[in-house]
Simulated assay, not measured.
Amino acid sequence: MIRLAIVDDHAIVRAGFREMLNDELGMSIQFEAACAEEAKTLLGQHPCDVLMLDLSLPDQNGIDLLRTVKQRHDETQVLIISSFSEDRYALPMIRSGASGYLCKDCDRNDLINAIHTVAQGRRYISANTAELLAREITGEAEKTAHEQLSEREMQVFIRLAKGESVSQIADVLHLSVKTVSTYRSRLLEKLQLGSNAELATYAHQHGLIFA
């Protein structure tokens, strides 16, 4: 039996997935959550094999929740199901620890196939994502400036862009204020920007802020 969890802040979306999966033999929905904190609490109480995760949540973006799940519940496979384009987000999410990426307009067969694939500990790669990966491996894909940032730089970047202060970021990421300030200076240099306001503008223009 594959134990599932659905994390999405829209009740109608959760209901839609529940309806798609209710009649599927060999699958059981352990819980549903509308925000990151609720998901973390319920996951501690009800272990699951596959967590279906939206990127846009009201209290915390899905990337941070993904990392938390992988740190605390390594046996849980995370399948991102988002309204954001595969072209922009699939590969970064898989690099961050997701086992697969689907758009919300996927059909039922794709969803069932993805769940079975990741439940077996494998990566679910759609045809579109496979093409993106092939282009990257062969050097055909042009990387934007932010795609060349390290994972930690990206974490700091997103938080700065959302208006968090250096001290707030230091506290959340368990870093010193000096270290975060160094990351900020490095980000401004790498992205060729001059202020936090420009960081926020860049993040909005490239669709990097989920909530």
Rank of each mutant, 00 (worst) to 15 (best):
A33G: 11
L173P: 08
H174T: 09
I112P: 00
L187M: 03
S83K: 07
M27V: 09
T76Y: 07
R184K: 15
L91A: 01
H46T: 09
M52K: 00
A130Y: 15
E24W: 03
H73Y: 04
R108Q: 12
Q155A: 06
M1P: 04
H204E: 15
M154P: 04
A119H: 05
I209H: 00
A145P: 13
K70H: 08
E153T: 08
L66R: 02
I6F: 00
N196S: 06
V69G: 03
F17N: 04
R186W: 00
S56M: 13
R95L: 07
S126N: 10
L57W: 09
E142I: 13
K143T: 12
T182S: 08
L91I: 12
I6S: 00
G207R: 15
P92Q: 08
D110H: 09
F31K: 05
H174K: 14
S165F: 05
E153I: 03
A170I: 06
L91G: 01
K162C: 12
M20D: 14
S195H: 12
A5G: 03
A11M: 10
R159D: 13
A145L: 13
G207P: 13
D107Y: 07
A34E: 11
A114M: 15
L57M: 15
Q71Y: 09
P47N: 08
Q120P: 00
R122S: 13
F84W: 09
E164D: 14
Y202W: 00
I80S: 14
E151Y: 14
T68S: 06
L43Q: 06
V13C: 07
D74K: 13
S195V: 15
G139V: 07
S126W: 06
I12L: 10
E38Q: 14
S28L: 04
S28I: 02
A5W: 05
S150T: 12
I80C: 03
L57Y: 12
A161K: 07
S167R: 12
V50D: 10
Q45V: 01
L102D: 03
Q120V: 05
S82W: 08
H116P: 02
Q192V: 14
D107R: 04
S83M: 10
Q45G: 00
R186T: 05
D107P: 10
A98W: 02
V177M: 05
R14P: 01
G26R: 05
Q192P: 00
G163E: 04
L65A: 00
M154D: 08
L43P: 01
C103W: 03
C48W: 02
A127C: 10
S165P: 07
A145E: 12
P47C: 02
V166I: 13
R135K: 13
Q77Y: 06
M154L: 11
T201F: 03
M154R: 14
T68H: 02
S85E: 09
A36Q: 06
I115A: 07
G97E: 09
I125D: 02
M52R: 02
N128F: 01
E37D: 08
Y124H: 11
E131A: 06
C106W: 03
S126H: 02
L25W: 01
S126A: 09
Q77M: 14
Q148Y: 05
D74G: 14
A145I: 04
L175H: 07
E38N: 02
P58K: 07
H204N: 14
A34P: 03
V118P: 02
H116E: 11
L51M: 08
S126E: 10
